[in-house]
Amino acid sequence: MMEPMLRVQDLRTYFFTDQGVVKAVDGVSFEVNEGETLGIVGESGCGKTVTSLSVLGLLPEPPAQIMAGSSVKFLGDEIIGADEGRMRNLRGNKISMIFQEPMSSLNPVYSVGDQIAEVLRVHRRMGRKEARDEAIRLLDEVGIPAPDRRVAEYPHQLSGGMRQRVMIAMALSCEPKLLIADEPTTALDVTIQAQILELLEELSLSHGMAVLLITHDLGVVAEVCDRVVVMYAGQVIETGTVNEIFTEPAHPYTRGLLASLPSVTNSGRRLNSISGTVPNPVDWPRGCRFRERCPEAGDGCEEEQALVTLESAGRSSRCCKTEAVNLTGAG
């Protein structure tokens, strides 16, 4: 089997606070292969953003700390604990990131052209003029009209969708192998959302770039992802292809999420909801972390649950009832 481009293994990122140790990410493993789009889904507070920031080493330490034993390998090289110089060479160059809030992710006092050119000058050692021309070309590539005029404008002169396009242009500037997109469409309205997703899909294809898409929106996942990692309470609870996750969800939590989506076939009926809230990350419940909210909880759920591989290598679930449920689910 080919070595995955990004292999995250047993990643544990804890925050040491006055209230106790917040185990935001508690033993997460997944892989991103060359050119694929992997979605990480989960509700707010499940640790998906912390996971992505840990990969690039962007969390402030302290209070955050990536615990010993965690491993993130990019193209075979361990990058947890790598020195700042090496990390800087990866960031914005080999691995780029775009964020949830395009309104606040761009620096308000520099023109968008300067902000894009900066990446080119640092990583590709371009001169002032060359970097500016390349910035204009990138703005054009991400579908910004009149890029030669927009290049001199400031973030406050652009709409949210435009700003996210600028962020994407910036992220693309050094032809990264991997783009981490942390809820890139959450802050945008629906039509703009679709445009941005389409753009991301198009660019990942044309640049052969893998995308790690973090979202809480299953609709987005269905639209653009190849494979899915479902997170809950700082852990991966299910993995599989988009098709597998949507047609045969193995974990009760995933089923709960899917049941809470509106669809054509259940229109007119009340949407399902998962009762309760995500438990406190300072003190995760013992055994299965979803137990208290799980409609199927019963014997065996007090035990710590392992991520069990199902029918194929990329298919796993962290539920002791997976197989039993699968049998009834198939009927």
Binding site: F99, S104, N107, H123, M167
Partner: peptide, 10 residues
């Protein structure tokens, strides 16, 4: 956020 963006740019 934009300071985090600057860091993420390397």
């Amino acid at each position: 956020d934009y300071v985090r963006t600057a860091k993420a740019k390397g």
